[in-house]
Nucleic acid binder design. Structure first.
Length: 413
DNA sequence: TCTGGGGTCCTAGGACCC
DNA sequence: TCTGGGGTCCTAGGACCC
């Protein structure tokens, strides 16, 4: 068995694009964003600045930090271009995010040489054609390739020889493993486990007690480099959602009603565009003490009508608030739709709508609402998202993060 | 403006079915 | 004293990833 899996990962992607676009930013600590740091350059990371960090805290850590507005269209363009370079070598590409992909070159080494050489060529081409650094890990499994690319950063290549896998893996810290975050790291650390080798040698029962049966077994398998995951060229999304941070707002109808309508609008437009209505609606409310409560309902039939989703979400939120009358302020609202239909013939929805309308006028797949959504979609197709909306919704919504950034994070349905 | 936004997967308990 | 048992679906919460 040879190592034919590549994991390619653009370095400090957003920040690197900014430094590419504006040479005066090169070599300097910069952060994309403002209120919250969306991405930081290596120079900023050296000061401890991290993505997701409040802008104020970042400035405290690094007073000379330069904040820049993101060029989100450029991120999409350059990310696509980099992944396309990988795709020039093999069709077996699994894109993980805007700046990251797995690839299996098993079928194309006779054309392009051994995997390590392919990786070198990809790195050189991305550097030459796009001006960006991309780190690559090459190994026999996805997990190992991913770890290798992390070890390779910045701007490096690490090839893990199949004969040296455990030697490579076992001296690394546990947090490099896929699935080990802060909580798991702390739990492991409490029993003295800090390296993947120590984790591997932990008795199965101890690991299971610590992390539960599934997680324990999974991590044990990964620590012994038994990674069953295969390259998945196209995996369909299982849910679609949207959320909005509110700062600190009263838990009142005038706040949650327009916000939920806006979120439902965002979600349902995507669901309709891909003909993927969903059966389960989940809402999440975060209170200002950071406590998070969720509530969900599963329907008999899938939905993708904005008004219907908004109404259902509102009911669920009301139920949450009614149970917690002492919580007067909320800091986040979220809606998610899951149990998505694989593909949905929209023509089927019309008779359903008629049927439902006849049974319970004005509810569920109401015909009028369905027609209204279709009209809105068409107008937006021609004139853009902001050309039309749900009345007052367009006004009162705080946009802490640009819409273009949200779209970058959206998974293809 | 104390704490972004879009996802995946797992767990544990309960309802319900045969 | 024990009080079937396996499977599926749903809900709420949580860890994790980019």
């Amino acid at each position: 068995m040879t190592a034919t899996i590549l994991h390619a990962d653009l370095d400090a992607f957003y920040a690197s694009v900014e430094q590419l676009l504006d040479p005066s930013l090169r070599g300097k600590p910069i952060a994309v964003g403002g209120g919250v740091v969306l991405a930081a350059s290596y120079e900023a990371k050296a000061f401890g600045v991290r993505g997701g960090m409040p802008g104020r805290q970042a400035r405290e850590l690094c007073p000379q930090l330069i904040f820049v507005n993101g060029h989100f269209k450029e991120y999409q363009r350059l990310g696509d271009a980099a992944i396309r370079v990988v795709g020039d070598f093999t069709p077996l590409v699994e894109r993980i995010s805007i700046d990251e992909a797995f690839a299996d070159v098993v079928g194309c080494t006779h054309l392009f040489g051994p995997p390590a050489e392919i990786a070198r060529t990809i790195r050189a081409r991305v550097r030459r054609e796009l001006g960006l650094a991309i780190s690559i890990g090459v190994a026999r499994t996805k997990h190992l390739a991913k770890i290798a690319s992390q070890v390779a950063k910045p701007d490096g290549l690490v090839v893990v020889d199949p004969d040296d896998e455990l030697a490579f893996l076992h001296h690394l810290p546990v947090e490099l493993m896929w699935g080990v975050g802060p909580v798991t790291k702390a739990r492991l650390g409490a029993t003295g486990v800090e390296t993947i080798g120590q984790l591997a040698k932990l008795p199965g029962r101890a690991l299971e007690r610590l992390l539960g049966p599934a997680a324990g077994e999974k991590l044990a398998a990964l620590a012994w480099n038994r990674d069953p995951r295969e390259i998945k060229v196209r995996r369909r999304a299982r849910s679609a959602g949207a959320q909005s941070a509110l700062g600190r707002k009263p838990a009142e109808e005038r706040v949650f009603r327009p916000t939920l309508l806006h979120l439902a609008d965002r979600i349902c437009t995507r669901l309709r565009a891909k003909s993927r209505p969903g059966r389960t609606v989940t809402v999440r409310v975060r209170f200002t003490n950071m406590a998070v409560v969720s509530r969900s309902v599963t329907l008999d039939a899938p939905i993708c009508a904005t008004r219907i989703l908004a109404d259902l979400a509102e009911e669920l939120v009301r139920a949450i608030l009614a149970e917690r009358p002492k919580q007067k302020t909320i800091s986040l609202l979220a809606i998610s739709v899951s149990h998505l239909e694989d593909s949905w013939d929209l023509d089927l929805e019309l008779p359903l709508a008629l049927h439902d309308e006849a049974r319970r006028p004005g509810t569920r797949l109401g015909l009028a609402r369905w027609a209204a959504d279709c009209a809105v979609d068409k107008i937006r197709d021609r004139f853009g998202w902001d050309a039309i909306g749900y009345g007052s919704v367009a006004l009162g919504i705080s946009r802490s993060v640009p819409d273009a950034f949200r779209e970058l994070a959206e998974k293809d349905l």
